[in-house]
C-alpha cells in the first residue's frame, strides 16, 4: 500500500499576524511557521496505516524552499520520503494546488491520498474535494476515523457531520481529508529527527509540471477584523431587558 500525504507550511497561529503593505498578503518576516494542524492529523493517520498495513508514506508539500522543513517534520515523525513542489504562495490558489496534487497522484499512484481538511491560514477547505473531482476518485472528507477493510480494497470512514457521525465506505484509491479528532499526532522523536536527515526528498518546480497556472481566485485585499467595542454596564434588569429589546433587538 502507498499513501501520499500533504504537509502544508503555515504561519503559526500563535504568531502576531500583520498585513503586508500591499494589503493582499500577510507579513512573513518575524513570524513562526509550522505544519498545518489538519495535515499533522493526516500524517498521523498515514503513519498508523503504515504500521498496520506496511504502507509506504510519501509526504508532499507545495511552497517555497522553506517548505522542505515541514516535509522533514513529516519524515521525522516517520514518513518514508518526500516530494516538494516549489512555488510561492502568491502564485497559488486552491484550484491550482488541487491540480498540482493531481499531477503528483498521476506520478505516484498512491492507494490513499490523505490531506488535512483545510489549512489553518487560508481556511478554504476545497483542495481535497477538487482533487477528488479532477481525479474522478471517491472522497471522504472530515474523517474522524479510518479503517481499511476488505483486504485493502475499501476504506470505511467515519465523518463528523452536523448532529452525529456518518459512516461511509469508499473504494480505494480514494481521497481522505482529516479532521482534528481523527487522532493525536505523535511528536517527531529525536531518533526520528536523526533518521529523517537521510531520507530522500524529490524537488520540482511548479513549471516542471506543465500546468495552466492562471489563477481562478485572486486576493484583492485583506483587512484586520474591527476591534471589539467596549461593553456597557447596566444598572438593573429592567434596563438590560429594555436594551435587548430596543438596541440589540433580540427579544
Amino acid at each position: 500500500m502507498k499513501i501520499l500525504v500533504t504537509a502544508k507550511r503555515v504561519v503559526d497561529p500563535d504568531s502576531k499576524i500583520q498585513i503586508a503593505d500591499t494589503q493582499t498578503s500577510i507579513e512573513l518576516d518575524d513570524v513562526d511557521f509550522r505544519v498545518n494542524y489538519f495535515c499533522e492529523n493526516a500524517i498521523e493517520a498515514a503513519l498508523e496505516l503504515q504500521d498496520e498495513h506496511d504502507a509506504e508514506v510519501v509526504v508532499c508539500s507545495i511552497g517555497n524552499e522553506d517548505a522542505i522543513q515541514t516535509i522533514r517534520t513529516g519524515l521525522a515523525m516517520g514518513g518514508d520520503r518526500g516530494i516538494l513542489v516549489e512555488a510561492e504562495d502568491e502564485v497559488l490558489d486552491g484550484d491550482l494546488v488541487a491540480r498540482t496534487l493531481a499531477k503528483l497522484y498521476e506520478q505516484e499512484k498512491p492507494d490513499i491520498f490523505l490531506l488535512g481538511k483545510q489549512a489553518i491560514d487560508g481556511d478554504s477547505n476545497q483542495v481535497g474535494q477538487l482533487l477528488a473531482e479532477y481525479l474522478s476518485l471517491p472522497q471522504a472528507c472530515f474523517a474522524s476515523n479510518i479503517d481499511i477493510i476488505e483486504d485493502g480494497a475499501v476504506a470505511r470512514v467515519e465523518r463528523e457531520v452536523d448532529g452525529g457521525i456518518e459512516t461511509i465506505d469508499v473504494d480505494l484509491p480514494c481521497i481522505i481529508t482529516a479532521d482534528l479528532r481523527l487522532n493525536e499526532p505523535r511528536y517527531a522523536s529525536l531518533p526520528g529527527i536523526m533518521k529523517a536527515k537521510r531520507k530522500k526528498i524529490e524537488e520540482f518546480e511548479l513549471d516542471d509540471l506543465e500546468l495552466d497556472t492562471t489563477l481562478k481566485v485572486v486576493t484583492r485585499s485583506m483587512e484586520l477584523p474591527a476591534g471589539r467595542q467596549a461593553g456597557v454596564m447596566v444598572s438593573d434588569v429592567d434596563e438590560l431587558v429594555n436594551k435587548l429589546k430596543s438596541e440589540a433587538k433580540v427579544l
Binding site: R34, Q69, R72, T73, A76, Y187, A188, S189, L190, I193, M194, A196, K197
Partner: peptide
C-alpha cells in the same frame, strides 16, 4: 544545524 532546529521545535511543542 537543521536537526538542532527541529529538536528545539519538538521540545518546545512538548513542553
Amino acid at each position: 544545524t537543521d536537526e538542532h532546529r527541529q529538536l528545539r521545535e519538538m521540545v518546545r511543542a512538548f513542553a
